[in-house]
Design a protein around this nucleic acid. Structure first.
Length: 411
RNA sequence: GGGCAGGUACCAAAGUGGUUAAAUGGGACGGGCUGUAAACCCGUUGCGGAAACGCUUCGAAGGUUCGAAUCCUUCCCUGCCCA
């Protein structure tokens, strides 16, 4: 345990707000602290937007603190209105349960739940059995509606409408904190900066009910320098699940980082020492691409493991002609029946099939605009049939635009 | 429960009987320039079709009409005001 983990987090850009900086720095430096972060299960996988909290947990755990990941099986049934413009879709309970299990498994890769230094709990376990009247009397009376309505988090919703169920979210999250304080001695809750109000509600509740001082810390809500939300691409989220978003795509997501974000991201999303990061981010001009590759490689290791990261890097090198080993086999690949290739396939059909175009119409548009190529040769005609002859020893390489690439092999 | 205003494509927002597959902006995508960056310039942006053209879309379902996003009816949903 080192006295510097708080400052390490701060230097790396993890901290947006802290309840009491002096107290938090002190406790993280002096003793083992049990802390928690909640993850609401609104999808079967977390995405890159959740990486900051995950990395913060990894850092704290490495520093010897005890991590509790709370799967929001109960709170997800209510839905957090904080900062949202519209009510969340109400999800089916069985679905929420399944999502929660999947997310737990995902977090396990980063945190290695051992029941001692890192554990996962599901708040459905204590929220579902709650008795309404008792809850109102014991917990509800500590909350001021006036104060809640005045908070920034609800501001948008007061204009667009806020249902009663959502209004209860904050109470439940506060109750989570109280529960973990009582059962596990948890004294630090962290979360995204949009959670600040909810987290403080828990701090207040514990003070009122237990007379104890506990702490709160939030992470900045990141956007890329281009203004996009972290972890979102056009196609959708940058999922941490290899089945939803392949390691190759994941690697590419990081390689495509804006120059201006490289240093910031290296600090947040890799465990590289700060001196090394300072060296990498100082690279100028096209040299910065080297830093991006390091970022991508390290980030991919953390999420998908070293083997997958190596494959992804090799595939990227093959696709973009970078230095080092080239491994075409690691590109996203689709097997197409030999017989179909013998008969010949239209390019639009094939590009749609491998997911490089959303529809034949789009594929045709792309061809007209010179955006599609096979084996690095621009397709200039819709009737350019693709056959077995186009499938070389490494397969048939399809490209849409400059960056989306896919390999087809006959099978 | 009553009154008012709304629900249009990824988002925002025009359109109030045919010239509307639906203005405009943003976003996104493609091309050019580059460094798998940014900025900038050009183009594209419902589905099918080589094309002609066809099909589906404006909360949902019915209806009026030669013709509906546009008119009528019912229903669902949202916001505001009143209770």
């Amino acid at each position: 345990m080192t006295g510097s983990i708080y400052d390490e987090l701060k230097d790396r850009g993890f901290i947006a707000q802290v309840s009491d900086e002096t107290a938090v720095r002190k406790m993280l430096g002096e003793k083992q602290v049990t802390f928690y972060i909640g993850y609401d299960g609104t999808a079967s996988s977390l995405h890159a937007g959740s990486l900051v909290p995950i990395m913060a947990m990894v850092h704290l755990r490495r520093a010897g603190h005890r991590a509790i990941a709370v799967i929001g099986g109960g709170t997800t049934m209510v839905g957090d209105p904080s900062g949202r413009t519209e009510m969340r879709q109400i999800l089916d309970e069985a679905v929420i349960r399944a999502f929660g299990d999947a997310i737990r498994a995902q977090l396990d890769r980063y945190l290695k739940f051992d029941g001692v230094g890192a554990l996962a709990v599901n708040n459905a376990d204590w929220l579902k059995p709650l008795n309404y009247i008792e809850f109102l009397r014991d917990i509800g009376r500590h909350f001021s509606v006036n104060r809640m309505l005045a908070s920034e988090a609800y501001k948008i919703r007061l204009e667009k409408g806020l249902s009663f169920i959502e209004f209860n979210y904050q109470l439940l999250q506060a109750y989570d904190y109280l529960t973990l304080f009582r059962s596990h001695g948890c004294t630090l809750q962290m979360g995204g900066d949009d959670q600040w109000g909810n987290i403080l509600a828990g701090v207040d509740l514990i003070r009122r009910v237990e007379g104890a001082a506990v702490e709160a810390m939030t992470f900045p809500l990141l956007t890329t320098s281009a203004g996009a939300k972290m972890g979102k691409t056009v196609q959708g989220a940058v999922w941490l699940d290899a089945g939803l978003f392949s390691p190759y795509e994941y690697f590419q997501y990081w390689v495509n980082t804006d120059d201006r974000d490289v240093g910031r991201f290296l600090r947040l999303y890799t465990l590289l020492p700060l001196e090394e990061i300072r060296r990498l981010e100082s690279l100028a001009g096209s040299e910065i691409n080297e830093a991006k590759r390091v970022l991508a490689y390290e980030a991919t290791i953390l999420t998908h493991g070293e083997d997958a990261a190596r494959d992804a890097r090799a595939a990227a090198a093959a696709a973009f002609g970078g230095s080092g080993e080239k491994d075409v086999a690691s590109l996203p690949t689709t097997v197409v029946a030999r017989a179909r290739l013998e008969a010949g396939l239209g390019p639009a059909e094939l590009f749609v099939e491998v997911g490089l175009a959303a529809s034949r119409g789009e594929a045709k548009r792309l061809i007209a605009q010179g955006g599609l190529s096979i084996n690095n040769e621009r397709i200039d005609s819709l009737t350019r049939m693709l056959t077995l002859k186009d499938v070389g020893p490494d397969g048939l390489i399809l490209k849409a635009g400059k960056k989306k690439i896919h390999r087809v092999i006959a099978g």
